[in-house]
Design a protein around this nucleic acid. Structure first.
Lengths: 252, 252
DNA sequence: CGTTCAATTGAGAGCGATCAAGTTTAGTGG
DNA sequence: CCACTAAACTTGATCGCTCTCAATTGAACG
């Protein structure tokens, strides 16, 4: 699959962005909103499986996810792959190539995705003209790092079942915060291979551990829908510590 | 060990900072240097073992490491600990508390350290008055995330011996870049317990794997000095991919 | 010369990997 | 709507890497 090239599409004004209504994002003032609106160079839709950004490449674009799931990953030469994190609506992807002029990981669409496109060559304007937004970018970078920190603890120090429980809680909370999940139910586009590559486990062992977790009753997982049946016990079992759900985050 | 509180000490002007001469950092112009000089509220020395920043706390300070090693880590309630990354001279620590008003990990001194102290409450001035420096902060945040990405791949997908080889190459390259290591030789303040907690392994297995690696001849490790005897073979064996050694990074 | 911390070694168990079939589900084209 | 195909999921069996428990050795220090 070749790396996707953005083409312009119909365009939703940032002031009418459907994401802004879910209560998870901080309000932008008029000048900020006008800047983002003008900074945004278009929209872009890609299909599940498309490679959005590729390791070692230098992308001229940054993206904010309006809809759909992606994942960041990197691989060893012999094919062993590690998924680093998932990219969900409201997340910014491609910041690395804006900083280093080179991607150190790939980003692939897990579902069909709708993206807002920004030009890297105009990225620095944001720093000169809108210090609040510049601060927001740093905030987002720090948030991403915090999530990877948590995943590293997960992979390094939790058992297989704990890892699975943890990642389910993590994804659920992120999606619930933006109104894409509720009542403990979560549409899960992941295959078990994705899970395995996220958790540093083999496919076979992931399958067995997941089924053991299901049999224990704490969660269900059928037809790509995952249900958290007993959140308290799952939190306890996995030693999960979610982020403060009240903090507002920036959306650019 | 209580969390360290900064006290002022004798003070090296930023323009005469010994770190700036090693050729790894980008040059600041006069106004930037003047700002950093004035932003810096003091210096601070701590002993090995001191906790500099503690998980869940909100620190009023940020630090740049002038000398010594620290490490970032977080732990599960039952004591299992994961070291997330090492903090070396030139690195900024405490950005998380500046962003989130709360640390999600701890930072501990591995050796005696000398730190430059900055006040978080003045941090935003950097964004309003010096967009280049603001960009630099984001750059540093992205760099830190990239390192954690690499560590996650390491812990998730490499074998024990590969993990050890990888982390040695990683630390060596970072230190060589700032003139703190050369000729394949590296002063290593880590205990095997630190190594184990970095690599997601048990202490016993770390010991056996390290000794196997030493026996293979690729490295030596005696009296806290680690020597890379055959870099090419070690790079090959670990599938190591270092960062571009020519890129200059910011120093704030 | 105890004390303490780090490194080492042995033994046994088990978690998770690998190899190898199957089975179920989903997608495609006739 | 059914046959065909590919992808995803399961299951069994076996291997071995890594963990845990338990001692012991070595080095540093007052």
């Amino acid at each position: 699959m070749p790396v996707a090239q953005p083409r312009n599409r119909r365009r939703i004004p940032c002031s009418a962005c459907p994401l802004r209504d879910c209560g998870a994002f901080r309000e932008l003032d008029d000048t900020e909103l006008a800047f983002v609106e003008e900074f945004k160079s278009g929209e872009f839709q890609i299909e599940a499986g498309t490679v959005l950004l590729e390791e070692d490449n230098d992308s001229p674009h940054l993206y904010t996810i309006m809809d759909g799931w992606g994942f960041r990953h990197k691989a060893l030469e012999d094919g062993r792959r590690q998924i680093l994190n998932y990219a969900l609506p409201g997340d910014l992807v491609g910041l690395q190539s804006a900083m280093f002029h080179k991607m150190e990981h790939s980003v692939e669409a897990l579902t069909d995705m709708t993206l807002c496109v920004f030009e890297r060559k105009r990225f620095f304007e944001l720093y000169t003209d809108h210090s609040e937004l510049a601060f927001d970018i740093t905030w987002l970078a720090a948030r991403e790092e915090r999530m990877v920190d948590d995943h590293l603890l997960n992979v390094g120090r939790r058992s297989a079942q704990e890892r699975i429980g943890y990642i389910i809680l993590h994804l659920y909370d992120r999606l619930e915060r933006i109104g894409k999940a509720r009542k403990g139910e979560l549409a899960m586009p992941l295959t078990q291979q994705h899970l395995a590559d996220t958790l540093g486990l083999s496919l076979v062992h992931t399958n067995r551990s997941l089924n053991a977790l299901i049999k224990s009753g704490l969660i269900s997982w059928e037809n790509n829908v995952c249900v958290i049946n007993d959140r308290d016990k799952l939190v306890d079992m996995t030693h999960y510590e979610g982020a403060d759900p009240r903090t507002l985050r920036p959306l650019i």
